[in-house]
Design a protein around this nucleic acid. Structure first.
Length: 568
RNA sequence: GCGCCCGUAGCUCAGCCGGAUAGAGCAACGGACUUCUAAUCCGUAGGUCGCAGGUUCGAAUCCUGCCGGGCGCGCCA
């Protein structure tokens, strides 16, 4: 790339000026009038050198040889920026890269194949998945995709909290519903689960076991109902997730940590590490030594562990499996647990800050500007299943991804159901479809398109030049989005790119400006624009695939249902 | 009270590894187009970047303090 070469040139000039060891930072200005590349070295050097920024910039500029490294012009602007304009020849070279690399364009090897775990969703099997889980699923899957594109070997993992008090409460709820079903006057337990799915589970249980456990409040039916409920709910959650196009590599059961003694051995290890003490008949861990706000109970008065103990055991297990990089995606309401889990792990010698977390805020659904809340399915919250059935998987995923995780999300149902370009998902998909349709119309197999022998320098309209530069930003963008664990950066990029693409496409409407159409009669121009169209298609395809969203070949309007045909 | 997050255009939000006139979408307003590549296109207007200090040649961006909103502060997860 010429960028690296130009950086070296500037560094060379600086050292001739007696200034060395300066990191020259070149960036690509958003404002086209600031050229194709710009640097602020002169400003950063001014006070150290004792000259005005503009003087330094002028001096550097005077040593730049126009014509080399694709530099077409250099100028000093504003307070002392150096702006470079590159030749069209130079700018269009990226198109060759894109066409050659195809679905590899944008990948990096930063991770060098090392292991990276993304743990997400991790819902308790106590009820249907809600929108928080949906947001988590969409975010986690996209973060995993971003990391994969940066060369990490990513494991997607789901932790089922299938042990503990919440699950006991579920069993008791089913038990109560079962008794009610058999005509007994029994109330739901305190803190029990209200949703109608609990009734369904009780009915299924009754269908299988009849009235054998009527009035029987011994441990045996309770355990049986608990296991049955977990099985049914897990099946349903798994179905929801696979329909949401999320596949996990590992489903990790909390109960397995008890069964194979890892909880026990973690207790022993913590005791051995010397950060454990007894107080009020409970066993405490001195998490304050590692920055927590107060010490935490790890074994309750009744002898059972608090949730955070298996959590620590689980993360030890992750570490021992070679996942030295872990990011957990969870709701912000759990943020209070982070310090204590990390503290527990540090007590056992794991590094500070392990694991990393992405916390997301809650989702609010609006229709006509008003909150939508009710769901009879779950008893209170809207389920993921309900939302994705109504608006489609692509739209649901995108909407969950398009805002930064730490912000609240307003899910606008009216916009989600709109099938025009107003809806960012469709806007991006249409842009992709339009590129595909050009090749259909031209009768060209786009996968076979090659850019050799095509004179790309004819792509010199302002719109084309900016579009090409936009495509060239893609690899760096993936890096940035992965580093910040921020899928919304990709969403913004794709929407912006799609806007430029649609505008470029529409400008060539044969009714107005046939000379701007891709399929113009001038064959040199046509061939070059086909290369651009193909490059656009590749970038949109790659971007969407990272987000787990379909890049359709063609789209149809179906007026009867809101669910888009490409989601099937 | 303590901790974390958020506060940018009428609305929903980017930008926040400090930089050159603060961006996008929707809504609003004004044009264009009449099926051609149109489940349109082009353009206009709209902001004390919550407030007040500080650091800096330069602050939406960094620091401090307030104000407003969310979440957490269980021997629940």
């Amino acid at each position: 790339m010429s960028q690296e070469a130009i950086r070296k040139v500037i560094e060379g000039i600086l050292s001739e000026m007696g200034i060395s060891d300066v990191a020259v930072h070149l960036d690509q200005p958003n404002n086209p009038s600031h050229g194709d590349l710009a640097t602020n070295v002169a400003l950063t050097l001014a006070s150290a050198v004792g000259k005005s920024p503009r003087t330094i910039a002028e001096e550097i500029a005077s040593h730049i040889k126009v014509g080399e490294f694709g530099i077409q012009a250099v100028e000093v602007a504003g307070p002392g920026f150096l702006n470079f304009k590159l030749s069209t020849d130079q700018v269009v070279t990226v198109l060759m890269d894109i066409i050659v690399e195809q679905d590899g364009y944008g990948r990096s090897d930063d991770g060098k194949g090392r292991k990276f775990m993304v743990e997400f969703v991790s819902a308790n099997p106590t009820g249907p998945l809600h929108l928080g889980h949906g947001r988590q699923g969409a975010l986690g899957d996209a973060i995993a995709g971003l990391l994969e594109w940066n060369g990490w070997s990513v494991g997607r993992e789901y932790y089922y909290n299938d042990a503990g008090a919440q699950i006991d409460r579920l069993g008791e709820s089913v038990w109560a519903r079962y008794q009610q079903y058999l005509g007994e006057e029994i109330d739901l337990p305190e803190g029990g689960y209200q949703g109608e799915y609990v009734i369904k589970i009780a009915e299924k249980f009754a269908a299988e076991y009849g009235d054998r456990f009527k009035g029987d409040n011994s441990q045996k039916p309770l355990d049986l109902m608990k296991r049955t409920a977990i099985r049914i709910i897990r099946d349903e959650q798994d179905k929801d997730l696979s329909d949401f196009r999320i596949d996990f590599d590992v489903y990790f059961l909390e109960s397995s940590l008890y069964e194979n003694g890892q909880v026990e051995s973690t207790v022993e290890a913590l005791k051995k590490a010397g950060h454990v003490y007894d107080k009020d008949d409970a066993v405490w861990l001195r998490t304050t030594e590692f920055g927590d706000q107060k010490d935490r109970v790890m074994i309750k008065r009744d002898g059972s562990p608090t949730y955070f103990l298996p959590d620590v055991a689980y993360h030890i297990d992750k570490w021992n499996r070679g996942f030295y990089q872990v990011v957990n995606v969870q709701g912000a309401d759990h943020h209070g647990t982070i310090a204590r889990v990390q503290a527990g792990l540090q007590a056992l010698g794991l590094p500070e800050g392990y694991p990393d977390y992405v916390l997301h805020q809650m989702v609010r659904v609006e229709r006509d500007g008003k909150d939508v809340k009710l769901s009879k399915r779950s008893g209170s919250y809207i389920t993921l299943r309900e939302l994705m059935t109504e608006v489609g998987v692509d739209v649901t995923r995108y909407f969950f991804q398009m805002r930064k995780p730490e912000g609240h999300l307003v899910f606008d149902l009216d916009l989600a159901l709109d099938q025009s370009d107003k809806n960012p998902v469709y806007k991006i998909q249409y842009a992709h479809v339009r590129m595909c349709s050009i090749f259909r119309k031209a009768g060209i197999e786009r996968d076979n398109l090659i850019a050799e022998n095509v004179d790309l320098s004819v792509l010199d309209t302002k719109a084309e030049r900016e579009l090409i530069k936009q495509l060239s930003h893609f690899p760096e963008l993936i890096r940035r989005a992965a580093r910040l664990r921020a899928p919304h950066i990709m969403c913004d990029y794709l929407e912006e790119t799609a806007g430029a693409v649609n505008s470029w496409y529409h400008a060539g409407n044969p009714n107005r400006n046939p000379e701007l159409a891709v399929l113009v009669s001038d064959s040199d121009l046509r061939n070059a624009r086909l290369v651009l169209a193909r490059a656009i298609q590749i970038v949109l395809y790659n971007g969407l695939s990272i987000l787990g969203i379909v890049a359709p070949e063609r789209m149809f309007r179906d007026s009867d249902t809101a669910v888009h045909s490409t989601n099937r």
